Amino acid sequence: MPGFLGYSSSIAFFFMLYFVVVVVVKKWSIPCPLPHNITILSDAFQISNSSDSDCTPKLFIISSKSGFAIPTMAFSFLCHTTVLPIYCELDRPSKARMQNITNVSISLSFTIYLISALFGYLSFYAHVDSELLLGYDAFMPRDIMVMVVRLAILLSVLLTVPLIHFPARKAVVLMLLGNRPFSWLIHIITTLTILSVVLLLALFVPDIRNVFGVVGSTTSTCLLFVYPGIFYLKIHPGPLRSFDSIGAVLLVVSGFIMGIISFSIIVNAWINDS
């Protein structure tokens, strides 16, 4: 039987599945282009669609916002920290079972990300907001399905918090206190501190893309590209000129380049927007 993390993750997945269904369905509820002489205002953005060119999908759009794309994708697939907690909750833990769970989870996540991103773009085109649900406020502020999906996203985030919080709390305790005996006082203080920091970021950071961009271009690129390559080179007994070692070196170099370029673009975008 799966443990707490398995149940919470499964429920959160179905909430996200409902989110995808709503994004797909609402694509045909938003007219494009909007009728002439109509301008819709919202706190999220201002839209004045009056030409068919605004409704033509483009395969690539290069702008200052492009620097947020790769870090956000890197952050989305950063699941390294959840592997060990999930592995410990398996009924019969094994490397093969964990690999199957990882493959299925990443495949389902990729499918959800792809469908929601595709239909979100086809709904708003150049006016896609960094937080997709905010875009619907301009067209259907009191739509029942959108309001329910907001609640579903809220519950999904709440249910997936333990997946990230458990290893984060463990890492903080190990870094600050080492392998000292378990203490409920330290456990509670660490938990409240981490949750308070997350809450403050959620309340005072105006745009979530800034969080995804910074974290994605720094920690995510390191965990996804740089560290795996370095660890492989450290433990692999083969020569540095072997095919696998060259691949690891390229992984490290590409991770550094990707992180530096993305972070530079993000900082430059902040400077231009200020």
Rank of each mutant, 00 (worst) to 15 (best):
V226Y: 00
T190D: 06
V83K: 02
D207H: 15
L158C: 13
L17W: 07
Q99I: 14
P85M: 08
S94W: 01
R180A: 13
T82L: 02
D129L: 05
V197W: 12
F256Q: 03
Y125A: 05
A171L: 06
P57H: 00
P228I: 02
S274M: 14
E89F: 04
G238E: 15
R241M: 15
S53W: 08
L41T: 07
V104P: 06
M16A: 08
M145H: 11
S274D: 15
D244Y: 01
N268V: 04
G216N: 06
L133Y: 10
L240A: 01
P31K: 07
V22R: 11
L176F: 11
F75T: 03
R209F: 07
P85L: 02
L5F: 03
S76I: 04
M16D: 12
D244A: 10
G67Y: 02
P33K: 15
K65S: 15
S242H: 06
T193K: 11
N103W: 12
I189N: 13
F124K: 04
I144V: 14
A117S: 10
S51C: 11
L203N: 13
A168M: 03
K170C: 04
N37D: 12
S196D: 03
K170I: 09
V25I: 08
L192R: 11
Y125D: 01
I101Y: 07
F231S: 00
Y227L: 01
V252P: 00
H187I: 10
I47D: 11
G255A: 02
H80D: 01
M140V: 00
I266H: 04
W28R: 14
L34I: 09
S196H: 05
I101N: 09
I61L: 10
S242R: 04
I47S: 08
S94L: 00
S183Q: 10
N100S: 14
E131C: 08
V104R: 10
H36Q: 11
T219Y: 12
L118H: 06
L185N: 09
P239H: 11
V128N: 04
L59N: 07
Y136T: 05
I86H: 05
H36V: 09
L177P: 02
F75P: 04
A168R: 07
S29P: 13
A138S: 13
L134K: 02
L5P: 01
R142K: 12
S76R: 06
F110C: 10
P167L: 03
L154F: 15
S53I: 13
R92P: 02
W184Y: 13
I260F: 08
S116P: 08
S64L: 04
F15N: 15
F60D: 02
P31Q: 03
F45I: 11
D52E: 12
L250E: 00
F256D: 03
V205R: 02
G178N: 13
R169W: 05
F13Q: 15
P93F: 05
L250C: 03
V161M: 13
V20K: 14
I11T: 08
H127K: 14
V25H: 14
G3Q: 10
D207S: 14
F4T: 09
I70W: 06
L240K: 00
D137P: 07
S262G: 06
F212E: 06
S48L: 05
P2S: 03
H127D: 14
